[in-house]
Design a protein around this nucleic acid. Structure first.
Lengths: 214, 214
DNA sequence: ACTATGATCTAAACGTTGTCAAGATCCCAT
DNA sequence: ATGGGATCTTGACAACGTTTAGATCATAGT
């Protein structure tokens, strides 16, 4: 719930102390990611953009990884906001589920650099992180799933299935063979709706297509 | 279809020329990835392991990225082999589809470092690459989907849906909240089967759960 | 009001990395 | 055998992450 605002106190023409460097660094990092992806996200360049020396960030973050993690958390807050916007006015479980799924995919397509950053495996998976911003995103999905009131084994299957489906589709659109489609937002929306429609979440008993393959 | 074999000519105690450096480098890189992930995959360390100087690799690869790409292609060959192994003895489309899906997930869980490497976005997505090893993997999935003989709009939905589902589930298992489950291979297998069972690929007409959310 | 304490920033350095150029060494075809 | 091309080494360069020592400021306690 940290708000990314500009330094509030007008710096007196050139203050030795920046005033709000921590936030300025996160903002610079975010801007840098959006411009040229994460591979060109350099701590020194971030410091440079914030008008500060190379060692300055180390008084606010112990690591480059820590700065990035903080940035990732801010992006998860945005995703959660997109969820909530999408859920407005939806009433039935089906509506809600599709709204959240589409919001997830749209977020990925509209902010591909952020999406890549958020799910970068090597720096602390957001899933396993216990940051409230990350967990709330996934809790929201779970709440929607629970409205289906599925029986015991089917509930977890549905959760993982929907989750996998949406995340996988987003990945395919952002970095995969569906990349060419990703600039046409209306088409992406239709695609996300169509794919989610394959999910069978009716409250019948769990009957896999086949029990075991061998 | 490049075979990763040791240098065939026994080096005469200390040859100035390595004899088969290109392949030795790829092998060293693969070993390094498996040991400590991709973030510690250093061109210099690769050269070090191959017993060669830091500049030597540049006579075989123009880039660090090119070496990695080559390694990725080898891993896609392994995935394709896993596909083919899984398809043995499967006859119905459902069986084949689940076999391929489970093989995909199992591959990811059994070789997480390789999986992460293969789908690393920043160095040339394997999807869009026209390397035969990568394309054949995805072509195999498509062939299985086609056996369902779905109607026109449903066919693509099914392909993307299955693909997304399996890839997403693998991602969740390798880097996500399902990571704790990933060491129990039997459980992973059951999970993959259960989740795929949610896919409704019956040849009915395409009827999305809802046409448009707003 | 004055100072000292801690927070913040700079400057400079260290080790490491990717990459390249110049030269050494070896293999092979002529 | 010999010269040319392939292969490897050496040494260098810039950039990076990180650390240390010291400079500068803000402010709490007197």
């Amino acid at each position: 719930m940290v708000s990314l605002v500009a330094p509030k106190s007008l710096k007196k023409t050139d203050a030795y102390h920046h005033g709000n460097l921590r936030i300025a660094l996160i903002e610079a990092a975010g801007q840098l990611v959006q411009e040229s992806g994460i591979e060109s996200l350099t701590l020194r360049e971030v410091a440079r953009r914030a008008g500060v020396s190379s060692g300055a960030p180390y008084h606010h973050f112990k690591d480059k990884a820590e700065l990035i993690q903080e940035l990732v958390w801010h992006r998860f807050e945005r995703l959660e906001q997109a969820y909530q916007r999408a859920l407005l006015g939806q009433t039935t479980p089906q509506e809600k589920l599709q709204a959240v799924g589409v919001a997830y995919v749209m977020f990925a397509v509209e902010h591909p650099a952020d999406f890549r950053l958020m799910f970068r495996p090597e720096m602390g998976s957001p899933f396993t992180s216990n940051n409230p911003a990350c967990t709330s995103v996934f809790r929201t999905v779970m709440q929607v799933i629970d409205e289906f009131q599925l029986a015991a084994p089917r509930r977890e299957q549905a959760a993982m299935g929907v989750w996998s489906l949406v995340h996988g589709l987003a990945a395919l659109l952002v970095d995969g063979p569906l990349q060419p489609l990703s600039h046409d937002l209306a088409q992406v929306r239709a695609l996300a709706l169509g794919v989610t429609s394959l999910m069978n979440l009716a409250n019948r008993e769990g009957q896999p297509m086949q029990e075991e393959t061998n």
